[in-house]
């Protein structure tokens, strides 16, 4: 299927959804004017992917910052991964946060509580 490749800007994240290379990642900053509109292509892509997923889907989140409007849409993305996992597929969320960023660490822990999917919290340094 076609890749979804969006380059990050000052208010939108970098998005790579590439089933051919088994690369699934959202990273950077997310505070778009209309978060529902911005994330719709991501949700659409995941709906199509769910019909015929790879044997393994490891999805990376490496966020620098996201606003509350985006937090709802990120939960929608995670819910899609939860569904995929519920259908018996090998799914894992890799949630990266910067070592000195307790807010992104907390956000990861909160999503981990809300979503039933294998979830790993990892640090990264810049």
């Amino acid at each position: 299927m076609d890749k979804l490749n969006l380059e990050g800007t000052e208010d939108t994240p970098t998005i790579v959804l590439d089933s051919e290379n088994n690369h699934f990642e959202i990273s950077g900053r997310s505070l778009p004017e209309d978060s529902a509109e911005f994330y719709q292509p991501v949700l659409d892509w995941l709906n199509i992917y769910a019909a015929n997923p790879n044997p393994q889907t490891h999805f990376t989140f490496k966020m620098d910052y996201f606003n509350t409007a985006s937090s709802k849409l990120l939960l929608d993305v995670l819910s899609k991964l939860e569904d995929l996992n519920g259908d018996g597929h090998d799914v894992k969320v890799l949630w990266f946060y910067q070592e000195d960023d307790p807010d992104m660490e907390d956000a990861g822990e909160e999503y981990q509580d809300l979503i039933e999917v294998p979830f790993e919290l990892k640090t990264f340094s810049v």
């Binding site: 505070l31 606003n67 509350t68 910067q98 000195d100 960023d101 807010d103």
Partner: peptide
């Protein structure tokens, strides 16, 4: 402090939006 800068940015975004 990076963490303070991030916090200020975060609060500003929510207040402005």
């Amino acid at each position: 402090q990076t963490s303070v800068k991030k916090k200020v940015f975060n609060v500003m975004v929510e207040c402005l939006q």
